[in-house]
Structures are given as structure tokens and as C-alpha cells.
Amino acid sequence: MKALVQDQIGSPLDVVELRDIPEPQPGPGQTLVRMVAAGIHPGDFFFTQGLYPEAKRPQLPGQVVGNHGVGRVVSGGTLAAGTLVAFSAGRVWAEYAAIDTQALIPLPDDYPIDRAAQLMPAITARDLLTTSEVQAGQWLAVTAGHSLVSSLLIQMARRRGVRVVAVVRRRIAGRDLEALGAEAVIALAELDVPLADAVRAVTGGAGLNGVADAVGGEVLTQLLDALTFRGRAVIVGAYDPEPFKTTALRVLMELQEIRAYVYRYFFAPPPPEDADYLKSVLDELADPAVVVPIADRHRLEDFRTALEETAARPEAGKRVLVFD
């Protein structure tokens, strides 16, 4: 079968290769899945560079890459052959994958494939909104506003009455975050005042009750400065490797919180009690009124273009690897 494989640590642009390798044989507790689609996510870049915790680092040489996808059951496990499933797992950028049976999330047979491939970003967006604890009428800052997770988060927040400030590097023609539900969009390239001051201006001096941040560095420093009493910042990404700053006294006296978030099913498969939660996310993701920006679809043979475009223009929309 064809698969995307790495033999050494590094950027996927440098270390991922297309190869023919043997089809995986499912072991005990695994199901063989024929891949249908897989989104390319920031976590895939972290993975190939060995930046994840030890238990989630590449096993070299010959590591098949890719973390999240959608496919159809071939054999093994308890689900009928042909069942459409989504999953967070490793070794999925290949024509077939052996997946922990417990990790499989069954989908309706007619579920839109492009959206099924974005289930994990949708779960992340929902979890960020919940973890921030921002209530209806309060303000939430969302960085990397053009990313898929942030775009979904903005829409989910609007549906729940949460007021959103979207922070982007620059405005992009054809990407209207106000139409998605952001009450204000702050483009860093256009700022002539500190970001914290711009946030206070657009919130009428109210400041932020929460931050969902994928950037870090000075952007997070400024947003923490605009965080209110009992405000909470949730860190989900790290585009900027520079440190962010706050003071222990401010965190202490303002009862602020800074939390980390990783994929909900990063270390363990979905427990049975998550069934209602997953159905809720799937239903919202399938709603035609929810905008899911997809930049393009790529065959495995075109993986390099997909990776290069993801790295150079992530704000353009998701790149999806397709196998059918």
C-alpha cells in the first residue's frame, strides 16, 4: 500500500516520503480501516519534529505519519465492515491503518466526508469554549482567527451568545470572520497601539473573560494583560516560540488561570460516557449553516503540495488528504 513515512526527526517538509509498504495486520483490540480522508493539522507538524510527549513521539525508522482521519471498517473489532468511522490515532496517512477499536467513532453512512475529517478540530473548538468558561454576554479572545479550530470556535461561541474578539495576523480577502460571528477582528499588521489597548477599546473597557490562544509569545502576553478578574486563558498552540509574560501577583490577585489543552483523545480513546457529547459535536459540525473552510483536497502523490501550502498559508483553509 502507499503511505507517507518518516525515518528521522524534522519538519514534514523535509522528512516525509511517499513509499509502498506492507498493509498493516491488526493485532488484538485493533480494527483494520481503509482510509477515506485525513486532515492536515498543526499537530502533524509537531509530531514529525518529535515535540510531543515521549509516549507520542515517532518510532523510527519507518514511522507512518498522520494523527486524525476518517475511513471505513475492513475487518476486526465489533463494527460491521463498511462502517464509516472517524478517529484520533497514529499512522493514518496511508491507504490502510490498524486502529485501536476503542478509538473508532461510528458515523452515519452519509456523513459529509470533508466534515468528518475535521471532527477533531471541531472537538477542540467545543472543548476550548467549554474550558474557557466564558458565559453568554462575556468576551472571549480567539487567536489565529483564520485557522479551522478558531473559525469553528467563533461560530460555536456566537451560537451560545459569547462575544468574540478574533485576532489575526492580517485580514484575508474572502474570509469574513464577522460573518462567522466575531464582534470585532483585530489585525496585528494594522495595529498602531498595543494589542491589550486595542482589546480594551473594542470591548468598551470590559476586557476579556477568556482567551483561547494558539500563538503564544507577545500576543499572549498582551491578551493576558487584558484579562479580567477570574479570567481564564487556554493555550492550544504555539506558533510563536518566544516566551509570554505575566506576573505572579497579577495571577494571584486577579484569580486568573492559565491552562493547557491537547486533543481530547490524545492519550486515551473515547470513553462510552462521551457518546452524547460526540453526537452533539457531530450534529453541530454537520449543520450546513456552520462554515468549514477547506482549501483543497490532495491525493497522497500530491502530499508535498499539501504540506507546503499548509505551512505557508494555513489561514487559507484546511488541506485534506483523500484516498478514494
Rank of each mutant, 00 (worst) to 15 (best):
Q49G: 12
Q135V: 12
L129Q: 08
Y265S: 07
G62N: 11
L255M: 13
R72L: 01
A226R: 00
Y263A: 15
Y239D: 15
L321C: 05
P53W: 06
L177F: 02
D109T: 03
L285R: 11
K56F: 14
R232N: 10
V162H: 09
E284I: 11
Q6S: 01
G43Q: 11
H298A: 04
P272C: 06
D283T: 08
A226K: 00
V251W: 12
G137R: 04
E218M: 13
D276I: 05
V134N: 09
D287E: 10
P270D: 10
P58N: 05
F244A: 15
P28F: 10
Q256L: 08
A196W: 03
E254S: 14
V219A: 12
Q102V: 00
P271N: 05
A166N: 14
V292C: 13
G204V: 04
R115M: 04
L129P: 07
A98K: 01
E301G: 15
A306V: 04
L252H: 14
T101Y: 06
V185E: 04
I21G: 10
D274Y: 02
H298S: 09
S151D: 15
R250K: 15
G82F: 05
Q102D: 13
D324L: 01
A295T: 08
N209S: 12
T83R: 06
D20I: 11
G231W: 00
D114W: 04
R126F: 08
G71L: 06
A226M: 02
V164S: 11
K2L: 04
V85S: 03
T124H: 09
F244P: 13
S88I: 00
E242A: 12
D302T: 09
R304N: 13
A182F: 01
S150N: 09
T221D: 09
A117T: 03
A80V: 02
S151P: 11
A286L: 06
V202E: 07
V15R: 01
I21T: 15
R313I: 12
G204M: 05
L129S: 03
L227K: 00
D127C: 09
G29P: 08
L227R: 02
A80K: 10
D20G: 09
T31M: 05
L152H: 14
V15A: 01
I9Q: 02
V165H: 08
R91S: 10
S88C: 02
A306D: 04
Q118Y: 10
K56G: 15
V211A: 08
P28Q: 13
L191R: 08
A117I: 02
